[in-house]
């Protein structure tokens, strides 16, 4: 998450972490954790359908 959000939010690293960059990182963290849940659900559903099919 740290790597991903750094890539998205700190395009040109300056002398300090700007307020806008910090806000972006915070937003990015929230979206990343949401994404984690979406992926987890999709994978769990898939495992469930797969194991009930066979």
């Amino acid at each position: 998450m740290s790597e991903r959000c750094f890539v998205k939010c700190v395009v040109k690293p300056g002398t300090s972490l700007e307020l806008s960059e910090r806000q972006c990182v915070a937003k990015c963290m929230d979206r990343y954790m949401e994404s984690w849940n979406v992926v987890s659900r999709a994978y769990a559903n898939r495992i469930q359908t797969y194991s009930s099919d066979s």
Binding site: R4, C5, K8, C24, K27, C28, D30, R31, Y32, E34, S35, W36, V38, V39, R41, A42, Y43, R46
Partner: peptide, 28 residues
Amino acid sequence: TEMCWDKCIDKPGNRLEAKEEACLTQCV
């Protein structure tokens, strides 16, 4: 999550868009 995040999320917004969520699910 790492792989699909790179594919599906362009700029993290104020909420996860329906389009992005669908992309993540389809990605998996």
